[in-house]
Amino acid sequence: MRAEDDIQAERQIVEALKRGEETAFVILVRTHQHRVYGLCLRMLADRQEAEDLAQEVFLTVFRAIQDFREESRLSTWLYRITRNHCLNRLKFLKRRAHEKQLSFEDARQADLHGQAIHRPVAAQVPRPDRLVEGKQIEAIVNDQIAALNEEHRELVVLRDLEHLSYEEIRSITGLPIGTIKSRLHRARMDLARRMAPFLEEA
């Protein structure tokens, strides 16, 4: 009954959005802002980038709402847009980081004394001897999720943090359910191994 009510409410929101009602836009944002922002933050691991991207997602939704054919839930469509935005932004950030790295390498080569002015930026892996309690375990887990590769990270986020069904994940990612399950298992095992030292501490 509740699910039916949700679907009905969602349909009304979609209709109002298609009519261009500002109120509907506000409701959409208030309802989904935390999840959209959360997904962006988990994927990008940068608050500023995440906020900017989450706003882009909502603006895209508002621009593209006329094309939404309601074959899936609004929330699923919203997640799909968020996921695509995240992947595109990650590509852009990687390219930019790579270009920066190249220019930095050039500068290093130009240094006559070859002083060790460049150190690879290691992933901020916390030491196991840190106190692993409360907020700190939370920060550690977030760091380890951020350290997963993108394919693994998105599945862990969608399944274990956003608690979406396999069917919803299939609709968002376009992957077959078998692939989702096997990849998710590898992602979880990867994460568990990374977390193992801290889990034993805790």
Binding site: H34, G38, R42, N142, L161, R188, L191, A192, L199
Partner: peptide
């Protein structure tokens, strides 16, 4: 154990 910790993470809230 790992999944239990992950599931216990608080939901991220937008600013």
């Amino acid at each position: 154990r790992a999944l239990q910790v992950v599931h216990d993470l608080p939901q991220v809230r937008a600013p």
